[in-house]
Amino acid sequence: MFRIERVEALSSNIYLMDVYAPRIAKNALPGQFLIVRVDEDGERVPLTICDYDAEAGTVQIVFQTVGAESYRMAQLKVGDSFADFVGPLGRPSDLCEMPLEELKKMKLCFIAGGVGTAPVYAQLKWLKNQGVTADCIQGARSKDILIMEDEMAAVSNLYICTDDGSYGINGNVCVALQKLYDEGKRYDRVIAIGPMIMMKFVCQLTKELEIPTIVSMNPIMVDGTGMCGACRLMVGGEVKFACVDGPEFDGHKVDFPQAMQRMALYKTEEGRLYLEAKEGASHHGGCGSCN
């Protein structure tokens, strides 16, 4: 069993957990993910590995409650266990495979949106340990839902932006990137992790600015080992399986409209389960929200 050693609510709907999973802790690299199941009846939920401590044998996850399973995960406490916790899955970030000399010369800009902040943190921290400090734009809708600000600032040159202008640069991450560009900043690579829609717009901008861009895709998955094909998406006109070929891809080659469309696959049924998880047996349908 995979014991939960720490739980922290980072905002009203984003949670951080440290989970005892020594095999993953020992072998993980930034960019990889894992799959978790709450209990014997649980769905397999993919989550990015946000941090890992090989000595303590723990792995950190950060998740947002968006549906039934993430809602059930948020009910767990220190000392509880997940039924399943498997990984590390997928390929590590390309940066991990680059010779250090080359890496040190690169000008990198990370873009973190919402719950995507945590996986960006994993990469920044790894880079920092290699002696590389990258720039990072962290975006949130508003100041009060900004997460992990201190941790992010400790491992990067951090620029914060909020959609409503309540903190930092006034505007979304694209506005912020354009601003840095206009101020004369030049980057060899942008790495954007966050909601699909954010990554799509970042890619549109970086295409114009001619900055190679990596995105981390999160399609629907089942096994996470290449066995089912649920996670397939088109990259540069070719079918790729995000769980084994990714999850990171060249953002300028990803077919975003199609990837976003595919997320709708189980929407109705997921909605029903979510209402059940929230309202338990008291949910009897009829309101129309669940179908």
Partner: peptide
Amino acid sequence: GLPKFMNIPGEQALGVFSANE
């Protein structure tokens, strides 16, 4: 365990699955 697809147009549509999935 790796499924094959036909590589025909439309295979990415919603409602197309591998038997494995």
